[in-house]
Design a binder for these strands. Structure first.
Length: 373
DNA sequence: GTCCCCCTAAACAGAA
DNA sequence: ATTCTGTTTAGGGGGA
């Protein structure tokens, strides 16, 4: 697996922190409005030397919801112009995979001014309750969460089971429903595997780009609907405390999330997907770890060589208008790796810094959570 | 009541 | 022969 090293670009000498709420409102979306991601601490309080030290010496740590709540910064390792983000099509929240658990209350990115009026925390349903997502949404999430945005039906089963414990014990009929959905839905397309390299039966399935936005919107609505009654992000103790049993999936997903947390941003420049970064161009989901390549354990890419039928030669996302970014977590910081070697444009830097200042002025989400009740 | 979406079940054929 | 995969049909529930 090839990987590349990144250093802080000259235009981004300081760690840049982002407040998703404000960034999305100002056109620079680092997180879906439904995402709990927040980066409370001040970015400007760190010296370049400190940032560089942390950058080069801190091992990657697990990526959890509570980590976000402990306060971290984002460092821009590379950049692209990510203006004109459309939060309706931003998939970052989707990749908060722990949030995909059935009815697990994902905090909405409520404006800070409204955070004081949160409703009381609702008791969490068992993790084994049936997910509110339709099979189409489940399949969509599974495929989107795959390295190559395409999966055999067996892996779709596996993803669903791994992420939704309900299906571990559910009767086998749901698999029939999955297959039925794949066959019937226009949203999914079948791709022939490379006969010489295929292991296992069947074809690969991908999301039709033209239906992707629809699926995303359905998923977003479902997600929003089922996360309106509670607010986990403001009660991190619920994740770690005895009152709430963290579903196994959270733990199992931590490592992969830490290593390759994908953030998809809608962009006006789809060509960003074909970055001049060779690693990124080869595999848009390939984690780029500046100093911790050894920690990156990419899932085996079994489907890279499959024959792609009809017009599926290109990446299904290639014309979808998304930029794919990656997060890396150190002990104290998060690294936001953007494709390409181009420097962060001044406008984006200013937006990020303004957001960070606003965030700092308002206090961290954790502080708000502690004092907001 | 109708339409649409979704879920579930079942049957069947073909491939591995 | 068995299991898995993919397709198709049918019926029912629920919401708009």
């Amino acid at each position: 697996m090839e990987s590349s090293s990144h250093s802080l670009p000259p235009s981004c000498p300081l760690p840049v922190s982002s407040s998703p709420q404000q960034t999305s409102s100002s056109g620079c979306c680092f997180s879906h409005p439904l995402s709990p991601i927040s980066f409370p601490p001040s970015p400007t309080s760190l010296s370049p030397a400190t940032a560089e030290s942390v950058h080069s010496s801190s091992p990657l740590s697990h990526y959890t919801a509570s980590h976000f709540l402990e306060g971290q910064s984002i460092q821009c390792l590379s950049s692209e112009n990510i203006s004109d983000q459309d939060d309706l099509t931003c998939l970052s929240w989707l990749h908060q995979r722990g949030d995909l658990l059935p009815l697990q209350p994902l905090a909405k990115m409520t404006p800070l001014a409204q955070q004081e009026s949160y409703a009381p925390i609702q008791p969490l349903p068992p993790a084994s309750s049936k997910p509110p997502y339709s099979f189409s949404s489940l399949i969509f999430m599974a495929i989107e969460d795959s390295p190559n945005k395409r999966l055999p039906v067996k892996d779709i089963y596996e993803w669903i089971v791994n992420n939704f414990p309900y299906y571990k014990t559910a009767t086998g009929g749901w698999r029939n429903s999955v297959r039925h959905n794949l066959s019937l839905s226009k949203s999914f397309r079948r791709i022939q595997r490379d006969k010489s390299q295929s292991v296992g039966k069947g074809s690969l399935w991908c999301v039709c780009p033209e239906y992707r936005s629809t699926l995303l919107e359905v998923l977003r609505k479902t997600h929003s609907y089922h996360s309106t009654n509670s607010n986990l992000i403001n009660k991190p103790e619920l994740l770690d405390g005895a009152d709430y049993e963290v579903p196994a999936v959270c733990e199992s997903m931590e490592i992969s999330d830490a290593l390759s947390h994908t953030l998809l941003l809608s962009a006006s420049s789809p060509q960003i997907l074909t970055s001049d970064n060779p690693t990124f161009a080869e595999n848009p989901s390939c984690p780029l770890t500046p100093d911790h390549e050894e920690l990156v354990t990419m899932e085996s890419v079994d489907y890279q060589q499959e024959e792609v039928c009809e017009d599926m030669e290109k990446d299904p996302l290639s014309d979808s208008g998304y930029i794919e970014l990656h997060y890396y977590q150190s002990n104290q910081y998060q690294y936001l790796v953007l494709p390409g070697d181009t420097e962060l444009d001044l406008e984006t830097v200013e937006i990020l810094q303004l957001d960070a200042e606003a965030q700092e002025a308002a206090g961290s989400l954790l502080d708000l959570a502690g004092g907001g009740y």
